[in-house]
Structure formats: C-alpha cells, structure tokens
Amino acid sequence: MSVKDMLLALCVVVAWGVNFVVIKLGLQGMPPFLLAGLRFALVAFPAIFFVRRPAIPLRWLVVYAMTISFGQFAFLFLAIKLGMPAGLASLVLQAQAFFTLLLGALLLEEMLRWNHIAGMLIATLGLFTLATAGMEGQSAAGITLTTMMLTLAAALSWGMGNITNKIILRNRNVPVMSLVVWSALVPVLPFFACSWLFDGGSIVVSSLAHISLQTVLALIYLAFFATIIGYGIWGNLLSRYETWRVAPLSLLVPVVGILSAVLVLDERLSVQQLLGAVVIIAGLLVNVFGARLSQRLTMRTPS
C-alpha cells in the first residue's frame, strides 16, 4: 500500500473513531431515533440524484438497510443516549466481526478456524469483564446490562448487514457508494416513525424547531465525513488492495474512539473496564492475525 493510501486509510480510521464522540455530542440536543433519521436523510439527499441506483432486487436493498443502517444505529444511538460511554461503545461494537463469522458459518456454511473460535472466547471474557464492572456499582460510567445488550444488538445488526452485503455482492458488481447512498433512503421513515411513537410529536417538533449548532455540526460530520467520505475512501481502497491489507486497520477504530472520548468527553475507565477493553482487543487481534502468525511459526519450525 502506498504512503498516500495508508494516510487515507488512517484518516478514515480517525473519522470513524471520533464518530462515537460526535454521536454522544449530537444526542445531547436531540432524541436518538430523530438524530439517526436526519443522519441518513442527509446521506441520501441530495446524493441519490447523482448516484445511480444499485442493480439489485429491492428486497435485498431493504434487508441490507434495515440491518446495517436501521438496526445497528437504532440500538447504538439508544445505548449511547442511555449512558454507554462513547469510547467503550466503539470497542464493544467490534463484536460485529464475531457475529459475522457465526452467521457466515450458520447461513453460508463458511468454515470457522481455530483463531476465530479462540478470538470469540477471549472477546467474550472481555465483554463479561466490562459488564460486571458496570453491575458492581460503576453504572455511573454508563455500562449497565441494558446499555451493554443494546450495543451488542447493534453489533449483531451490523453482522447481519455484512452477511446480506456478501449475498448481494456474490454474483453482482455493485459500487460501494451506490449501496451506501440508496440504502440510506430506506431507514429514514422508520427512524422518524419510531421517534414520533416513542418520544412524542411535541418532542420531535421542539427538537427540530430549536436545533442547536452543535447538533447541526454533528449531523454534518455523521452524514458526510463518517459515512459518505469514509465509506467512499474505504470502498476504493478495498477495490484496489487485498482485503488483508485494508481490513485489519479497522482494529484501530476503537483505539481512536477511546482516546477521543477521554480527550473530548473526559471519559475515564476503571481498572476493571480497562482490563476488559484490553482483553477484547486481544480477542480481535487473535481473530484477525492468529492463523497467519501460526503459519509463520510452523514454517520457521525445523522438521
């Protein structure tokens, strides 16, 4: 990978890591479902007038959008609104990698290797460490059983979206931006409907009438920088380089998320929460690099 492309990839990683802090700031002035609906409305409009609709059946576009967009961000925004720390949310959400592997094995008959299983077990131990830290009286830090389960539900939705994406792309060449832009159109009305139903019409109208500059800037960042520009660059890199060169860089997203949350939101981790975070990162590393490292060690071992 060239130096220029490596810097572009790192810019995307930073944008996606800071994304969780921006969500936290945006939710300070707007209900979660309304914020998510506006975010995807800005992704879809006016881009749909310039990006061709993906050549896939409508049902698959809807399934993809309702899992990776509606499901993921409905659960994630609600978890952060209820107090889930932005930094730890960026880390727990990476459980999507393991959900994707499990769903791939169940639905697509893909093979699970030893490093995948080991990585899942290690990461599960880390999640348990985080969850028990909250339940033992540190709920002021935002980690409760509810926020943890909501964040994991977001990760599961992301994993389901990944599988749908794999099915869509299996026999079709669909441009990444085409899928991102047109799928963003689908969850807008469901998000607005959920906000009207759960928050009430008066809250929705008041939030829109008195929208703050902080919320507007958050929406611009979420829609254009984190979504359109971020996915555009990432998709371009994946199209020009092997997956193994690009995908592992996403492991830096929770690192950026935690650091930015410390710097901007003054979030602090307890010793047990920090331990849980380290264990989860270890599980992700084993999942991604375990097989490759094992092969190298085997090649170096004299027969």
Rank of each mutant, 00 (worst) to 15 (best):
V13I: 14
F20P: 05
I23F: 05
I23Y: 01
L25F: 02
G29N: 07
P31I: 08
F33E: 03
A36F: 03
L38W: 00
V43M: 00
V43W: 02
A44E: 01
P46A: 11
F50K: 05
R52Q: 13
A55I: 00
A55N: 13
L61F: 04
L61T: 01
V62H: 06
V63M: 00
I68Y: 07
S69D: 08
G71I: 12
F73H: 00
F73G: 01
I80A: 04
A86E: 10
Q96P: 06
F98C: 12
F99T: 12
G104F: 12
L106C: 11
W114S: 08
A118W: 03
M120Q: 05
L125G: 15
T129W: 03
A141C: 02
G142R: 08
I143G: 10
T146I: 14
V174C: 10
L179R: 06
V188T: 07
S195G: 09
G200D: 06
G201H: 04
S202R: 01
S212N: 02
A218M: 02
I229W: 15
I233C: 04
I233R: 10
G235V: 10
L237H: 13
G257I: 09
I258P: 04
L259W: 15
L263N: 07
L269F: 11
L269M: 14
G276R: 08
V279Q: 11
N287I: 06
R292I: 02
T298D: 13
